[in-house]
Design a binder for these strands. Structure first.
Lengths: 262, 262
DNA sequence: TTTCATTGTGACAAAAGTTCACAATGAATT
DNA sequence: AATTCATTGTGAACTTTTGTCACAATGAAA
């Protein structure tokens, strides 16, 4: 019996009978590290290439919960900003038949099933998620799945399984579009951050440089960031103020119809 | 045998074996008529209430094609602006069991199948579509399905089947959000239109009044509408100029990063 | 003590958005 | 035939927002 295949299909312990085999979720988890926008890639077993963290939806499970579960299994974090951005439904995007054949072994019989028991079309609902890289390193969850993972620069994505390269490009587009509508960058930053840091993150996501003075004025005019008394310490120059995202002010700004595009 | 049920399930002629019974598409077709934003509702048979035009996806059919087919069957128009905005996946949103029971007849046996042959969860991919009301009245397609339909004011939606009321509200939100990103209103208008008409359509969609002078200046500054030599004739006052959406200019504006929010 | 990259801020100009006003228009009314 | 009147195109004046530039403040590193 091929344990890897079983693990892949059975979602790390969930019996196959309790899975919607025609419905999967794939998560594009973005983070900013070393000045680059990165996405999490996994390799459940050495025989497979890199792919997005994802999996089949449980019977009776909400899609959002499914995405949340998949990310929690990998990061240990329960509350991650999630955005369902697109459904990938190309009939040929994933084939159980090809998948089992590619394994070049005893195929579906591993699961005591005929290949005809598997659906011919598997949908994937694409989610993008945002997380502060530093928050990840502080997490030590015992639930976290042990599988090989890397953070790949969005500008240098390796070849991926299935249609996952397409999913990442669509996620990137959706992230940038959403950023014109809502100030979601704060999900990538720690609770307290400086204006130059906020600006840097915008620049990294949008892949273009912004003017410092007008950026600061715009952010302050939105009035959704609370300036703290503290400043960032230990810098070799003037210490920048720390800011914090202010939910109540943000709600007010939304009601006023503030345009959050930069 | 219940012909209506067969027609409902079998998608007007498509054998049940060729349908993805766990995957449906529902279309929220918007139009502007008599100063109101309206959506198309259908009633395939008197025993059912109002619902959105929709149906099961064919095996091997692309989702976009499916939505296009469904709308073409109802409107006769082949090219309609389409936007896949959300997936409705609540496990209990549609149940074949409840559906057949509600019919209070010989249930699934109509289709020579056991209820266990039907999936327990049916997804719906939501599309919203935009069409010029006048274009509809000029269409005389022989393919058009004969079923009872109405145009319902979005402010006065009757009780609908399944989760279709929720789908309409989500579509309305998606339409308004999309309108901040792209000038998609032109899909609701005829090829030639005046500035006051364009403004009126924005006001109807966003459900708020806009200033005439600043609206006109904004539209002209985007430089995506071509002013024609013609004017609207037969009006009891100064004749307004006619404009036309200019694709090439629009593409240039997108490259320049024009913000299309009003 | 000096150097130096970075930050907060303000002056100024340019661009965009708002408000108001007025002449032009042409069917409808008298 | 003259008058009425709601609507339109446009421009002036003003406010707000954005873009550009400059300069002093800062504090670790040299």
């Amino acid at each position: 019996m091929d344990t890897d295949t079983r693990i892949f299909i059975e979602q790390f312990g969930k019996p196959i009978e309790q899975l919607e085999l025609n419905l999967s979720v794939d998560c594009v988890l973005f983070t900013v590290q070393k000045g680059c926008l990165k996405v999490l890639l996994t390799q459940p077993a050495p025989k497979w290439g890199w792919m997005l963290p994802g999996g089949f939806v449980f019977k009776n499970e909400h899609l959002d919960k499914s995405a949340q579960r998949i990310l929690q299994q990998r990061t240990g974090i329960a509350e991650i900003y999630l955005n369902q951005f697109k459904i990938f439904s190309e009939p040929s995007r994933f084939s159980f038949k090809d998948f089992f054949n590619a394994l070049d072994e005893e195929k579906a019989s591993y699961l005591n099933r005929s290949i005809h028991d598997f659906p011919t079309r598997v949908l994937s609902v694409g989610y993008f998620a945002l997380v502060d890289f530093k928050a990840l390193s502080r997490i030590h969850s015992e639930e976290t799945i042990q599988e090989k993972t890397i953070w790949a620069d969005v500008k240098k994505i390796p070849n991926l399984q299935f249609d996952h390269e397409e999913i990442i490009q669509a996620a990137l587009l959706a992230l940038r579009t959403e950023l014109k509508l809502k100030p979601i960058v704060y999900n990538l930053l720690p609770e307290k951050f400086t204006m130059p840091e906020l600006q840097r993150y915008y620049e990294i996501i949008l892949d273009k440089s912004l003017d410092r003075s007008s950026f600061q004025k715009r952010m302050l005019r939105w009035d959704i960031y609370e300036r703290l008394e503290e400043r960032r310490e230990g810098v070799a120059h003037k210490r920048p103020f720390l800011y914090r995202f202010a939910w109540e002010r943000y709600k007010l700004a939304c009601e006023k119809g503030v345009n959050f595009s930069v």
